[in-house]
Simulated assay, not measured.
Amino acid sequence: MPELPEVEVSRLGISPHLVGEKVKRIEVRAPKLRWEIPYDLKKLEGQVIRDIRRRAKYLLLETDVGTAIVHLGMSGSLRVLDAPIEAGKHDHVDLFMCNGKVLRYNDPRRFGAWLWCEKGASHQVLANLGPEPLSEGFTAKYMHERAQGKRVAIKQFIMDNKHVVGVGNIYANESLFTSGILPTRMAGSITAKEWQMLVSEIKSVLAYSIQQGGTTLKDFAQADGKPGYFAQELRVYGKGGEPCPVCGALIQEQKIGQRNTFFCRICQH
């Protein structure tokens, strides 16, 4: 599924075409994705999109009257079309702009979301979220304090949005590998020094992935239709049974929290 870098790349891709432009109309072809699409999304019509922000894996299209909240789910993607073209089977939402362009949302598995939040209100999907991983609020000290006494695998801990948002499965695997930390270790056992390394690696791997255009997954391509490039440089994710790029030992694979986990027993402790 699209993770934080893919969502951020989507934000960067669509923003130049939409920010400052007025919405002419919205066309919804699927009454329900992960949740029912609210009729209030019609309030977008006639509004100027003032900004497009990202919170965790949600895109926030902000107007003077409220915010459209978009989640790409398991297989969703956004495209900016220069002009309307016939919609395909999985093209569920179109945002027609007064400048002639169209923001098209495609989602084969229908596990994404389009929601609405009135101006000045809050939405439950954005409640109880931890800091952004690339923000100043995400520090080793903060994570070390939250992890004290926690008997949960460190991989699950850093993937929990209550602690930090947007560290998905791919990037949790990669960050733990480059930090030299076994994903099965209890979060409470991670030392302050190890947290310094892990937080630094999480920031680094996410920032680099955004720079490279997001990880190429079978269900994801950028807003301009071009795939991301970071997947070509993954060290351990999806490489079970292959040689470790550092020591040559075979990469191990097991389920942690029902998610595929990849690691090297030699390089990670």
Rank of each mutant, 00 (worst) to 15 (best):
M1Q: 14
P5M: 06
P5D: 08
V7I: 08
S10M: 15
R11P: 15
G13N: 04
I14Q: 02
I14D: 04
S15G: 04
P16V: 11
L18Y: 00
V19L: 01
E21M: 07
K22T: 15
K22Q: 15
K22N: 13
I26G: 04
P31T: 06
E36W: 07
I37Y: 07
I37G: 01
Y39L: 13
L41R: 09
L44D: 02
L44H: 04
E45L: 12
V48E: 15
I49S: 05
R54P: 02
R55W: 04
L60D: 00
E62D: 13
D64P: 02
I69P: 07
L72S: 11
G73F: 06
G73I: 09
G73Q: 05
M74G: 06
M74T: 10
S77H: 13
V80S: 05
D82F: 03
P84D: 05
P84R: 03
P84K: 07
I85Q: 10
E86C: 03
A87G: 13
K89M: 10
H92T: 00
V93M: 07
D94G: 04
D94Y: 01
L95Y: 12
L95P: 06
F96Y: 15
R104E: 00
G112M: 06
A113F: 02
L115K: 08
K119Y: 12
G120N: 14
A121W: 11
A121I: 04
A121S: 15
L126T: 00
N128W: 02
G130P: 01
E132S: 10
P133C: 06
P133S: 07
S135K: 09
F138V: 00
T139H: 02
T139V: 00
H144M: 01
Q148Y: 03
G149T: 11
V152L: 10
A153F: 01
A153T: 05
F157C: 02
M159H: 11
H163T: 01
H163K: 06
G166K: 06
V167T: 05
G168F: 03
Y171W: 03
E174C: 08
S175D: 00
L176R: 06
T178V: 15
T178R: 12
G180W: 04
G180N: 07
L182M: 10
P183E: 01
T184V: 11
R185S: 02
M186L: 12
A187F: 05
T191C: 08
M197C: 11
M197R: 14
V199S: 07
K203W: 09
S204T: 06
V205T: 12
Y208P: 00
Y208S: 10
I210A: 09
Q211V: 08
T215N: 08
T215D: 05
T216K: 15
D219G: 10
F220K: 13
F220I: 09
A223Y: 00
D224G: 00
P227K: 05
Y229S: 12
Y229R: 14
F230L: 07
Q232T: 14
L234G: 12
V236I: 13
V236P: 06
K239R: 15
G241M: 08
P245W: 09
V246L: 12
L250Q: 14
I251P: 02
I251F: 05
Q252N: 11
E253I: 07
E253R: 14
Q254N: 11
Q254D: 01
F263P: 12
C264R: 10
I266D: 13
C267Y: 03
Q268A: 07
H269F: 15
